[in-house]
Design a protein around this nucleic acid. Structure first.
Length: 258
DNA sequence: ATGGCACGCATGGCGTGA
């Protein structure tokens, strides 16, 4: 089973690239973030014409998540179900081929002093409780998405310059670590321990990919039971190098399931 | 040290992203 995640930065701008990537990689499930489109305008027709199922929740201009799959997704649910802000355009989960796929677009946080940064830290706490409420480590679960955190110094170019950044501050790294303590394994790192492997490259950095000035913000984190079955994982930089690219690259992993 | 660029919007500059 092949599962992937891709922050597309507008699905309408990225549809041609997205269809080509699906055709080439044939994932069982692809989690998308930042679709930036309200549901009434979601471009489901070109995906359906290519034989893909898709479930989604979005809003105008901002956020938006979707799961594209070859077989229909089951038990599709949206949002954090703890009575707080549900953020349905930031979290969805579904069963695809016997695996529970959780797709998140974690709030970026804007500035350390901004209310959205407090909201981001709280969001990780709420998500940790969500995992504890719904899943057991023996379940086959994969948490995918743009987590907006470089988990370790190896996950960002020049970490010493980013100690006060909302995606690398000690507090947000700890919030992700606390959330992962449920049992999540970083599948990409199982296969690629080397530093300097990134999934995000800022548009404003000239030739960022060529100079490898980036961040690893996009993850597939598997439950212990699922991680034990991982056979491969990669960051695909080709779509990031292409014209009219998203600022993120797709990340995928494969699992050997019965 | 600062700002690059791209996106969407009842657009012609602004808020947001990371």
């Amino acid at each position: 089973m092949k599962i992937a995640t891709f922050n597309v930065n507008s699905i309408r701008k990225r549809m041609e690239m997205l269809l080509a990537w699906l055709r080439q990689h044939q994932p069982d499930a692809l989690c998308l973030q930042e679709t930036k489109v309200q549901d009434a305008d979601f471009p489901r027709a070109p995906l359906a014409a290519a034989g893909w199922h898709v479930v989604f929740r979005g809003e105008k201009t901002y956020n938006g998540v979707a799961i594209v799959s070859r077989a229909p997704a089951a038990a599709v649910r949206f949002g954090l179900d703890d009575g707080g802000s549900a953020d349905e355009a930031r979290l969805m989960w579904a069963n695809v081929g016997g695996v529970t796929v959780v797709n998140t677009y974690v709030p970026q946080g804007r500035e350390l002093t901004h209310a959205m940064y407090r909201y981001k830290l709280d969001w990780f706490r709420r998500l940790g409780r969500f995992f504890g409420r719904h899943f057991k480590p023996a379940d086959l679960v994969v948490w995918c998405g743009d987590l907006n955190v470089a988990a370790e110094p190896e996950d960002v170019h020049a970490p010493e310059r980013h100690q006060q950044h909302v995606c690398f501050h000690a507090d947000v790294r700890q919030a992700l670590a606390d959330c992962r303590r449920w049992g999540f394994v970083d599948v990409y790192r199982r296969f690629h321990p080397e530093p300097g492997r990134y999934s995000f490259f800022d548009y404003r950095t000239p030739d960022a990919v060529q100079h490898n000035i980036g961040w690893r913000l996009d993850y597939l984190l598997a439950s212990p039971a699922l991680a034990a079955r991982a056979t491969a994982a990669e960051i695909d930089l080709a779509p990031r190098r292409a014209p009219q690219a998203s600022d993120h690259a797709p990340v995928w992993a494969e699992f050997a399931l019965d």
